[in-house]
């Protein structure tokens, strides 16, 4: 996977998370995975289609999702209700859109699918022939992983 696809996601994640949740977010070491990976419990997926294709997955535990949604709404949320889900989807949407804007400025042309959210236990995700790059982020609400799998369209 080319690094120019990834950097905009890392930069966008820092920018948006810094603005809406935690200014002191830190990034862990990036790593590549080509096999199945576990999903932490709450995952938002946004698809990309155009000059490049693939998906971005935003993954966190339910506890972290509740804490992030509480921070973004300015009120304590304790149940995985519709507001929590829509808040987490909006976070994923803002990060992906910001990254895509940068990639479009660099000359890549593609569109986004609306975000979808998965919740559950013991889930995993596999990519058929596409390596996934995982960007782990530590925020005061917990751990958030941004999992990007993109390839160029042949």
């Amino acid at each position: 996977m080319r690094v120019e696809y990834i950097n905009p996601f890392v930069e966008a994640a820092f920018k948006i998370i810094g603005q809406v949740i935690d200014q002191d977010a830190t990034r862990g070491k990036l790593y590549l995975k080509s096999v199945s990976q576990p999903v932490l419990g709450v995952a938002v997926i946004v698809g990309l289609a155009g000059d490049v294709e693939g998906r971005v997955l935003f993954d966190m535990s339910e506890e972290t999702a509740l804490a992030v949604a509480s921070a973004m709404n300015g009120e304590k949320l304790t149940q995985m209700n519709q507001l929590v889900k829509e808040t987490i989807m909006e976070l994923a949407n803002m990060i992906t859109a910001s990254a895509v804007t940068k990639l479009q400025d660099l000359g890549f042309s593609f569109d986004l699918t609306p975000p979808a959210i998965f919740t559950g236990v013991d889930m995993e995700i596999s990519n058929n022939g596409v390596e996934a790059l995982i960007v782990p982020m530590e925020i005061s609400q917990g751990k958030l992983e941004i999992n990007v799998a993109i390839r160029e369209r042949i």
Binding site: M72, N73, G74, Q82, L83, E86, T87, M89, E90, N93
Partner: peptide, 11 residues
């Protein structure tokens, strides 16, 4: 279409 954004703008 987002409940979160509508709530935020309304506030």
């Amino acid at each position: 279409d987002s409940m979160f954004v509508t709530k935020q703008i309304t506030q």
